[in-house]
């Protein structure tokens, strides 16, 4: 059977793509963010996953409001990045793992998660930037299975539902008839709000508690409604749902996790950024 080795969480911000392209990683504005990544890369270099399942939210590249799935699973051989409106250079296509995609789809639907399946799926900065941050040099060495969770149009899936989805995804990975090593990635958050008079809202206290909960009390955030989470973390801070799905996946691999590394920095753009590496114990 496949082996679920651990999970990573990181923020995503379009401007990170611009910073990578222009080589600004050591500029004072960017350094505290990018300097978080070498320990994560060292861990990945040691454990060498073959495939990653990545929980992310599309920002209007692949999905528009004409059709907005709550949960969508990629099932493509290749995923392309494209212009999202800012002319940030696009990254080369990423390789999919269709065997895991279909095993995941079958397992999730069998567990009553009626996901949308996507044999063609453009992936935006939320999916591509974590891959580029974790594997900055050369071609991405892992195949991917993108899982997109709607954070654009309310109603959004409840935190408890997302947690259950993540756990089901972890069980699916564990039951995959393959000798591959699989990691899960969460892309999003933490607290931030782009829109309205409350733009710039950041809640360090909540973020700190949330990050701590991921280590030892992973269901903690499922006590909150979406409305409460938006209030506590901002309209885009709700992307913490991705982290919940990632962490819930790991419960299928082991009862506890080891937190190997974390970083938290305010602000990049309008965002409280976070990075975490969790190894299935």
């Amino acid at each position: 059977m496949a082996r679920l080795i651990g999970g990573l969480g990181t923020s995503h911000i379009p401007a990170i793509g611009g910073a990578i392209h222009k080589g600004l990683q050591q500029e004072p504005y960017w350094k505290p963010f990018f300097d978080g990544f070498p320990p994560a890369r060292r861990w990945l270099d040691k454990v060498k996953p073959d495939v990653v399942v990545i929980f992310y939210n599309d920002h209007g590249l692949n999905f528009f409001l004409d059709k907005m799935p709550t949960f969508a699973v990629g099932a493509a051989a290749e995923y392309r990045n494209a212009d999202e409106g800012w002319g940030i250079p696009t990254l080369p296509p990423f390789r999919g793992d269709q065997d895991l995609s279909w095993h995941l789809i079958e397992s999730l639907i069998d567990r009553s998660f009626d996901v949308t399946t996507c044999q063609e799926m453009m992936i935006d900065h939320a999916c591509t930037l974590p891959l580029k941050l974790f594997w900055p040099i050369g071609d991405c060495p892992v195949a991917i299975v993108p899982v997109c969770i709607n954070t654009v149009q309310f109603p959004l899936p409840a935190a408890a539902r997302v947690y259950a989805l993540g756990r089901a995804a972890g069980e699916a990975i564990n039951s995959w008839d393959s000798d591959k090593r699989v990691a899960v990635i969460a892309s999003g958050g933490l607290s931030h709000q782009l829109d309205g008079e409350r733009a710039g809202f950041i809640n360090k206290e909540f973020d700190t508690e949330f990050l701590a909960s991921l280590v030892s009390n992973p269901e903690w955030a499922t006590q909150f409604s979406i409305h409460e989470l938006v209030e506590k973390t901002g309209t885009q801070g709700i992307e913490l749902l991705m982290w919940l799905a990632m962490r819930a996946s790991l419960t299928a691999a082991s009862p506890t996790v080891r937190m190997l590394h974390s970083n938290y920095y305010i602000p990049i753009s309008n965002t409280a950024t976070a990075l975490m590496v969790l190894e299935a114990a």
């Binding site: 379009p14 401007a15 920002h59 209007g60 409001l65 999202e84 409106g85 800012w86 002319g87 654009v152 149009q153 782009l194 829109d195 309205g196 008079e197 733009a199 710039g200 309209t235 885009q236 753009s269 309008n270």
Partner: peptide, 24 residues
């Protein structure tokens, strides 16, 4: 919607901090 409006703002080279400043 914030995600789509960001593409409009991008036409004028405005970043999210410009947008945040305007709104606040």
């Amino acid at each position: 919607n914030a995600y789509y409006l960001a593409k409009f703002a991008g036409i004028f080279g405005l970043d999210m901090q410009d947008i945040g400043a305007q709104q606040t």
